[in-house]
Structure formats: structure tokens, C-alpha cells
């Protein structure tokens, strides 16, 4: 509702990306990605409820090439959002606010999420 366009200090153009800010925006992005995935999940469930003929037709769509790529993406979104979500919950109880802890937990989230994603895709495909 601005009637006058006021100038803003530059932020994205000048601030160096850091583990804190990058993980934060990725948390938001993975959240949005997961929300989209929920819609596909519901589509899958409704297809199941519609009988085996309808499901097989839907499964053909759900199994198509580019969607497979999305499943890998959603897997990472899930494990990342879960790990970083727990990091957030720790902060909510008041733990882990020292800079060293924030950096360490940040890297831990990235490592755990990556390993979990790979492990899950491996286990699911086998």
C-alpha cells in the first residue's frame, strides 16, 4: 500500500551468502517444494481410491520420466526440511545459538540430509 516508492538499501546484491542465510532460504524453498509434493501425493491417493484401472492410468503419468526427477528432488526436500526443521525446533527451546553451534549444526543438517536422501533413494529403488 505504498503511495510513494521509497529507496531500499541493497541486500541481495551486497551481502555475502553465508551458511545461516543460505540454509534459511533453502528451508523455505524445500517447504514450498514439499507443499507442491503434497498435492501429487493426494492425487496418488485419490487414484488408488478410484480402483485399479484408474490407478494404472495414473501410475503411468506418475511414473513418467521427468516426474522421477521430481521424486529425487522431493526426497531431498523432505530430508533437508526435516533436519533443518529439527535445528529450528532446537532454537525454539533456546539451544544452539552460539555462532560455532549455528555453523556446526548447519553443516550437520546438510550432511545428514544428503546422506539420508541418497540412502532413501537407494533403498526405495532396490
Amino acid at each position: 500500500m505504498d503511495r510513494v516508492e521509497r529507496p531500499l538499501s541493497p541486500h541481495l546484491q551486497v551481502y555475502r551468502p553465508q551458511i545461516t542465510s543460505v540454509l534459511s532460504i533453502v528451508h523455505r524453498a524445500t517447504g514450498v517444494g514439499l507443499s507442491a509434493g503434497l498435492v501429487v501425493l493426494v492425487y496418488w491417493l485419490v487414484a488408488l481410491a478410484s480402483g485399479s484401472a484408474a490407478y494404472d492410468a495414473a501410475a503411468a503419468i506418475l511414473g513418467s520420466g521427468w516426474l522421477k526427477f521430481c521424486y529425487a528432488g522431493w526426497s531431498f526436500c523432505f530430508f533437508y526440511h526435516l533436519a533443518n526443521g529439527i535445528r529450528h525446533l532446537m532454537w525454539d527451546i533456546g539451544l544452539g545459538f552460539e555462532m560455532k553451534q549455528i555453523n556446526a549444526s548447519g553443516w550437520l543438517v546438510l550432511i545428514v540430509a544428503s546422506i539420508a536422501t541418497v540412502a532413501f533413494l537407494f533403498a526405495a529403488i532396490l
Binding site: 503434497l38 493426494v42 491417493l45 481410491a49 480402483g51 485399479s52
Partner: peptide, 23 residues
């Protein structure tokens, strides 16, 4: 609206499957 629709659709679908009313 989309979230509510997804919730209703999802619960309905699971119930339909679980109660055995699928072919």
C-alpha cells in the same frame, strides 16, 4: 481452499481404500 480440498480428498481416499470399498 486448496489445502482444505487436499485434506478432504486425501482423507476420503484413504478411508475408501481402508474400508475396502475399492475395486
Amino acid at each position: 481452499f486448496i489445502h482444505i480440498a487436499a485434506a478432504v480428498a486425501g482423507v476420503f481416499a484413504v478411508l475408501k481404500i481402508a474400508l475396502g470399498a475399492v475395486g
